[in-house]
């Protein structure tokens, strides 16, 4: 059982490699991979697809910055965040805004599994922990 899960994981990883163009997920390639899997379904198709989904989600998250904010954020600010992150990670990062009033003020940016925290709520939490 464990070995079949491992095989599915390895196969999914190979499919993810095929789905990338210049380090970013290509919708066209993903469509091609899915079409291939529909025609030539592997023995453990569900496990492969689940693993593929998880890995693609991780890859997609690496190229998408979710900017949580409590207060107005202009398009120019979003663009500058995206540019700064693209430069830092050396890959194209797009930024999308999401309002989170519980941050009180400031920003929290998620890129992949990194978080850049610059909100008042986080600073208050840090102060509470230090006292």
């Amino acid at each position: 059982m464990a070995s079949s899960a491992k095989v599915a994981q390895q196969f999914a990883r190979q499919l993810v490699t095929l789905s990338l163009v210049d380090g970013s997920v290509s919708a066209e390639r993903v469509g091609g991979v899915l079409a291939y899997l529909e025609k030539h379904a592997p023995a453990n198709a569900i496990a492969v697809l689940k693993a593929y989904h998880r890995l693609i989600a991780t890859e997609v998250a690496k190229g998408e910055a979710v900017v949580e904010h409590a207060g107005p954020v202009s398009e120019a600010e979003l663009a500058s965040i995206a540019a700064a992150l693209s430069k830092h990670y050396r890959r194209t990062v797009t930024a999308t805004a999401r309002e989170r009033p519980e941050l009180i003020a400031g920003l929290r940016v998620h890129v992949g599994d990194d978080i850049y925290e610059s909100s008042v709520a986080a600073q208050l939490a840090a102060l509470e922990a230090s006292v």
Partner: peptide, 14 residues
């Protein structure tokens, strides 16, 4: 204490 909690963004890996 305020200086310590400067507005500089803190990076965390999650």
């Amino acid at each position: 204490q305020i200086a310590k909690l400067s507005s500089k963004a803190v990076k965390k890996n999650t």
